[in-house]
Design a protein around this nucleic acid. Structure first.
Lengths: 122, 122
DNA sequence: CTCTTTCATCGTTATTCGACGATAAACGAT
DNA sequence: ATCGTTTATCGTCGAATAACGATGAAAGAG
């Protein structure tokens, strides 16, 4: 295990939860077509080095490196130094975490409310 | 010499797929804590008007309106005019779509590749 | 009609992002 | 030690973002 995974405030109308930041950070990292492209490539290939990714995108090497840095900082990608090159691997757990957070948000509360609660709130 | 193009035949994502843009757009919309906050609020409450959201955030009304516009353009939220006010509802389908796209990406390919494919290629 | 409420839009400013070229660092091979 | 290869980082520039206050439009109340 890695973290104690503290109690999820079950309150639907709770004011604060660190998940805001986590989900936002993950989404922000994936909020660019080039980065989605990189992640997709890594998902198919398993892992590869930076040059391999550069060849698959219409971007300069420095730009790709920038994007990889963003993905790495979000934890979506891991970089392993291998001599002069760096092997980039997708962190599927992190990506699954993003999916889980989004799915959890989509299912929170009652879909019932989605249609008729506009009147209240006087 | 370099590997011209790693095998990506089995996936629908050899070079281009509109899913890139869709996932990136959805993520970009959620890539801001305030927007995650709004979506979470809507998920709990079902739907409510703009003022209700403003009261829950430390932001000016115009800023919240901007964020709502972004969410609306991404399809994550629907706005219904109700006289002078606007009722905002979360589109759970869209949010689920985001989750599904992320999950699909996380499960694409073989996790087997994630550990040992860095050596080959010499 | 006038007034109030509610929200969207406009204009502004500061910050961040995305992209590039150029440069430097790390390593293997010669 | 010197190359060649591969990456990361720096500096820069234009564009987009985020935030705000102020203004304006739509609908109901008086």
């Amino acid at each position: 295990m890695k973290e104690p995974m503290p109690p999820l405030p079950p309150g639907p109308a709770a004011g604060e939860s660190p998940e805001h930041a986590e989900l936002a950070a993950l989404c922000k990292a994936l909020g660019h077509p080039a980065r989605v492209r990189i992640v997709e490539h890594l998902a198919g290939v398993g892992c590869c080095m930076c040059g391999c990714i550069v060849e698959n995108l219409p971007l300069a090497q420095s730009t790709v490196s920038q994007h990889l840095k963003v993905l790495k900082e979000a934890g979506l990608v891991r970089g392993t130094l291998e001599g002069p090159r760096t092997c980039y691997c997708l962190d599927r757990e992190r990506l699954a975490r993003l999916a889980a957070l989004a799915a959890g948000l989509a299912e929170r509360g009652d879909p019932d409310l989605d249609l008729g609660s506009c009147d209240e709130g006087t």
